[in-house]
């Protein structure tokens, strides 16, 4: 369970990225966050695993206060939170399985990861997470040899290898083409359903949000402007979030809403 209570994030330059956000995300939920660039989507996501420290209020993850947490607490917390990135953030000069094994870093002794001697059990977990995103046949291939969609699936496998309770996806499909985007979004939805992992996805595209989300959170200039069931969302709501009418640019496939 993730709880935001009057959370503020002010960056060192004075820019207020989040202001007075309060929300509660229950275990096993699939939440989509939408908003324009700079609305605070990434900040909200990174406040959950402590990458961005909040400056006021409180953020609790499974009852642990993230604000002002020690490095050890943060590491333990992050061990249970998988993260998926817009730019995949893979290590391209090594194999796919080595990338997936990075998800096990918080679970294996340090000397093992330093020497690259991974326990058989952890290798198995990495392989299973690759199987879950159907990329296991590429396990021993260098990550640089994969296509964009395949790379993002390795990114998801890396997060799954953590066996997380929470999955944070920061614009996971922004650098993918429409067809691949759907595959990756389906993967994320399946993972959420099958494994019951709380999944929070930042999306820029409204059609994807509508097809895959259940609960929608709208951010505008760092403020929470919408939080509710995606079935109740209409064009008026989106206008409220975006501050303007929806245009084809806001859709992944460029079609009318």
């Amino acid at each position: 369970m993730i709880e935001f209570e009057n959370a503020d994030v002010t960056y060192p330059g004075g820019f207020k990225a989040l202001s007075n956000v309060s929300l509660k995300i229950n275990k096993g939920e699939l939440v989509v966050i939408v908003g324009l660039s700079g609305a605070g989507k990434s900040t909200l996501l990174r406040a959950i695993n402590g990458f961005v420290p909040i400056t006021a209020g409180s953020v609790k993850v499974n009852g642990t206060e993230v604000r002002g947490a020690s490095q050890a607490t943060l590491r333990e917390l992050r061990g249970g939170i998988g993260m998926i990135f817009q730019t995949f953030n893979l290590v391209y000069r090594t194999s796919v399985i080595n990338n997936a094994l990075m998800g096990r870093l918080s679970k294996v002794p340090r000397w093992r990861s330093m020497l690259g001697v991974w326990p058989a059990a952890d290798r198995e977990i990495a392989l299973q997470s690759l199987e879950r995103v159907e990329i296991v046949e590429k396990a021993y291939i260098r990550a640089s040899n994969l296509s964009g969609g395949q790379q993002q699936r390795v990114g998801i496998a890396r997060a799954l290898a953590q066996q997380p309770q929470i999955l944070l996806a920061d614009e996971p499909v922004a650098s993918l083409d429409p067809v691949t985007s759907h595959t990756v979004m389906r993967d994320l939805r399946r993972i959420n359903r099958d494994l019951g992992i709380t999944t929070i996805i930042n999306l820029h595209f409204l059609d994807l949000a509508r097809s895959y989300g259940r609960r929608l959170i709208g951010l505008r200039d760092g403020e929470l402007v919408y939080d509710g069931d995606i079935a109740d969302v209409d064009d008026e709501t989106f206008r409220g979030i975006y501050g303007r009418a929806v245009t084809p640019d806001d859709l992944k496939e460029g079609a009318e809403l």
Binding site: R75, R78, G79, M83, T87, L90, V91, M102, L105, M114
Partner: peptide, 25 residues
């Protein structure tokens, strides 16, 4: 530097994160 962020996001200690994300590079 992006893989380092990914490694830290998994809750890794500093040096294992560097070992797995920077060393292969």
């Amino acid at each position: 530097p992006r893989p380092i962020e990914a490694a830290r996001a998994t809750g890794s200690h500093h040096w294992p994160a560097i070992r797995t994300s920077v060393w292969p590079q």
